[in-house]
Design a protein around this nucleic acid. Structure first.
Lengths: 203, 203, 203, 203
DNA sequence: CTCTAACCGAGACGGTACGTCTCGTCTTTTG
DNA sequence: CAAAAGACGAGACGTACCGTCTCGGTTAGAG
């Protein structure tokens, strides 16, 4: 996974002074993750994290710029959904596997929390950027690689726009997660892959 | 449009007593819409609406169940994006037209506000339901009708799952609105329609 | 006594809106007075008053401009040291009686608290003004009257500066209260009166 | 002057280890005095002293027991008001001279700071004791000596209580400094001396 | 033509969380 | 061993909104 997203990225780690307390960092992440799972973002206040973690509010403010930042770090601290693809040579299968993994992760509490994170990101630019660079981009990069290989193997027409294809595959999933107008069934994976690849198959 | 979404649906309209003040209702919606446009959902607090509308907080609480409810009403009070489809007999064209309309609406402030509404809905079930039934469902119903006609005209295979097709068409749009990982260009409309219909065209 | 010093002095009592809660006002004063007596000014935080009084912090901030203001109000709410003078015709006796009253009040907790109030006033101009106008001035006015009568009766030379005489009488008392370099004995009253009047007696 | 009041009185000067940094001591006193003059006691926080002096907070804590202690040291580091008396043989003159010196020192910033120190001492026993022993007592000792000589010279009745006389002379001055109900004029000195000595002159 | 029910404005109130500040302590490295 | 640097737990600060609660005043139809 991609570990700490927003904090502890000191470019030149200063050596003098008391070092950052690893205990506090972990306590915060654990407490935040607990609160997130129990009551959602709304329950995960700086105040309640501090209380549960036995850490002072200032310490949290010092290392995380916003509530969303803590939330993402806490979420990823707990959920390490894999996004490494198998490469079986069968695009359809590889994509479907990956989609299914996400679908299953999104059914259940983790999905609700992810939805809340994306939701909160709509009014928190820092959180939005964190989600983009820490969550979305790595997954898109990996998927793009798979699709590029499929183009090389002539399983996909070379003139299709890969970003659009990726959106066709993944956006419906997130959209159902957020609007819940349709269920997140297992067979959605196959259906999305089939429809999408049918549309980009070489003629 | 669908007007008041959450309020004024008194089942048995009571006749006695002072009637609801239309002045107050409009003042609230105008003030809320202004605030929404100026500073987003975060700036649209009950307190600030009341102050700007010259209306007491209690009056707002009386007629709208939550902040989100006011927000949606205010949004729709101001933005009446059409969603009636032309029916030219050319599915591809009709869908692309409709998508383009939405894309253009979503570029600009209204799109940002819509994103915030959807975002807020992730932690406000009432708002979520309002958005589903007041915004999403009507559009999906209309689109479904178009697709059904296309099936009738054998432009689409009869075994495809219409809800999934609709998600393939629209979800990427909302997904880009919310994550902003790709631009909301005009040509996205055509591309989505082409890819999607290619995937569901009769063989 | 002089009741509320800093609050509730609304010049034109507005009639609209929920009226101020007398319950809250009293609860604050009682709680503040308790805390003042138990732990001094330092223990009388807005936070602790609010908690003990079952009143929200905002309510306190609304009606009292500063911690000192609450303290003075609370002090006077509890301690109503009389400062009305007998007028026996014997200046020496009248002054000594009054001084003794104050000396006895200042021995004990109330004295310590008064010292803290005066102390705090050194860095809180509002509190300083409150103490001057609400505590000191009324007492000085009454004493001045006594001295003026003594001048009329030729017990005091007509050319003496009354404010200076009052300081000669009272300042040592406050000074001992604050520096505690000498005890606040009962006989200090007589001694001060004797020395002072000897110095201003007609020749 | 009486130099460092609370610190640097190590009974057995430790010889081993790194010696105390004189640079740090002076930097602290200078910074503290500056802050004291600029913004009063409230602005002279441990934090701000450390920052301005380029000294670590711990170093300050190590050598001064409380904020008040630093304040007094800093005050005396900067203000060396003389309190040595001339002995002209004329009590009235000697006392008036000394009072005038103090009055003039107390008009202006130094007086305000002194008032704040005395004020703070009301809730800081250590500071109170420091002020008593480091500021008040030396002055009272010197004044007592002057008065005792006056008794010897039969300028004052032998049965008067010297401490009370000293309070009659000096308390009004401090009292006006703190309450500011009357100005600290130059002629206050003469008036106080005249009234007081008139009251204790041999008959 | 009053009565009465519901509405409305104003604003006080008890709460919860915010983000900041300073305190006094603790834990490192550097001199 | 002292000092600097700075992280940390603690807890009060003053503010912002929340959702609720009086108030006094209004606006209708019903009696």
């Amino acid at each position: 996974m991609f570990g700490a997203v927003t904090s502890a990225d000191a470019p030149t780690p200063p050596k003098i002074g008391r070092p950052r307390s690893e205990r506090a960092r972990l306590a915060v992440l654990e407490a935040a993750a607990d609160l997130l799972m129990e009551g959602g973002l709304g329950a995960m206040t700086f105040e309640s994290i501090a209380a549960r973690a036995g850490v002072s509010k200032v310490t949290i403010y010092k290392w995380w710029p916003s509530r969303g930042a803590v939330a993402v770090d806490a979420y990823f601290h707990r959920h390490h959904e894999a996004y490494s693809f198998d490469d079986t040579g069968d695009v359809a299968h590889d994509l479907a596997t990956q989609l299914l993994l996400l679908i299953r992760a999104f059914r259940g509490r983790a999905g609700e929390v992810m939805a809340e994170l994306i939701g909160q990101a709509q009014s928190d630019p820092v959180l939005a950027e964190t989600l983009r660079s820490g969550w979305l981009q790595p997954r898109r990069d990996a998927t793009a690689e798979v699709l590029r290989r499929a183009v090389d193997r002539s399983q996909i027409r070379p003139d299709v726009d890969i970003p659009t294809v990726m959106d066709a595959l993944y956006a419906p999933l997130y959209w159902r997660l957020m609007m819940r107008h349709q269920p997140l069934d297992d067979d959605l994976a196959g259906e999305l892959v089939r429809n999408t690849l049918d549309g980009v198959r070489p003629r």
